[in-house]
Design a protein around this nucleic acid. Structure first.
Lengths: 232, 232
DNA sequence: TAGTGGTCTAGACCACCGG
DNA sequence: CGGTGGTCTAGACCACTAT
């Protein structure tokens, strides 16, 4: 072991390598942080930082007194970025467009109530809107907004500002659920998205809360061919 | 400010709150770490840790000399766990089953070569297999394995051990791309998955590398109704 | 170039949990 | 209970970059 000092990323990568190369197999126990620190000629804090990272990425499991083990049931852990739709479109070099389709105050259907679990959301604003890329339909959003949590939405001109953007800038959340699945386009969505009924659509459902109170839930039906790609 | 010492999570949450409550708006600059440390009565290291976390979750942006700013274009950053299929099935309380459908050494089609970018994968093993939950089709995987990187796969009895599991235990990767999209079931997949042609399927494409060399790429077509859900 | 975040250190104490 | 990871501190130096 060279006697140069190690950075935490070097330490992390070295351990990672040990796992990759099979020197350490799933289920095996790794040395204590202190020993690794001695071996690598660095402070224990540095090892700690490295191990945290490995644990965060699902490679290793740490328990006080139990030590650090290579995970037996490796998980692929991926991070997805879901940008604001306008930014997503513009970053691809297309022109963003937006079109309000419908807006009404309604008691939410059972399916929407279910998204919020036990917390009764009360009366809600139902908004349907279409996001466009170069004037072509891109994402159709079907959104319910809790009027108790976000009453100001009633004063927003949703034909100009999308609820998507207004909420992001004005109603920060501290809890979030995301759900992805595939669904056949029904007649109505097919028309709005400019595609054919029966086409397979990737659907993103997103529900947000602030300190336990529901804010909004949105079902976004994406254009055919839409893909979600994980961050590096 | 109480004069008790603060943990980095407390610091993080307090800053988070400032953003949530609108005391600090998107684009605003936050105080220097050192000042926050003084105000919160803790070491700068502690603030640093807190800020790292906020930056990681996409809430805040930090630049040396530039300082820390609340992000103008907030991204929703979500983490997904993609477990080994066997574990996924068993954790739901179902019985896992596996069935090899096809296995042949082939030159990969262009679409597969594209998944690996410039790196030519050379000859590959093409494997098709079905994962079952309680004897019902669950995920159909269509996999290509690079024989230069993983020649040992030829000696594995793939009718007993799924390539999925063998690779995870024996061919660790250090780079990964994930892709999610919706696709109509064609005749063949519909039959294998026990569903109807035209049904909307969520497809997960996963490609892995080790130090730049391709290992495997797999297209997993999930049963109708399959959902991906983000980690808390 | 000066200001800010990024990292390392050595040491201390705490929190959890296995034997 | 004792061993291990988790965190905090005060200080130092480095690395990037806005001005």
């Amino acid at each position: 072991m060279p006697d140069t000092r190690r950075s935490w990323k070097e330490v992390r990568d070295r351990i990672h390598q040990k796992i990759l190369s099979g020197q350490v197999r799933p289920g095996d126990k790794l040395p204590r942080d202190a020993d690794i620190a001695a071996e690598m000629n660095c402070a224990r804090t540095t090892v700690q930082r490295a191990m945290q990272d490995l644990a965060d990425s699902g490679l290793v499991e740490r328990r006080r007194k139990g030590g650090t083990h290579v995970r037996r049931d490796p998980v692929t852990r991926a991070t997805l970025d879901i940008p604001i739709t306008r930014n997503e479109v513009e970053q691809k070099g297309n022109t963003y467009g937006y079109q309000l389709i419908g807006r009404e105050t309604l008691a939410p259907p059972h399916s929407v109530q279910a998204a919020f679990g036990q917390n009764l959301p009360g009366p809600m604003l139902h908004v349907q809107a279409l996001h466009l890329a170069d004037a072509r339909p891109y994402i159709l959003e079907d959104r319910w907004i809790c009027l108790q949590t976000a009453p100001e939405i009633l004063d927003v001109d949703l034909s100009e500002t999308s609820a998507n953007e207004w909420l992001v800038m004005n109603k920060p959340y501290d809890d979030l659920t995301l759900r992805f699945y595939a669904e056949k386009a029904d007649e109505k969505r097919a028309t709005l998205l400019g595609t054919d009924p029966g086409d397979a659509l990737l659907v993103i459902e997103r529900t947000t809360w602030i300190s336990g109170a529901p804010i909004t839930t949105v079902k976004s039906s994406t254009e055919p061919g839409y893909q979600l790609i994980s961050r590096s």
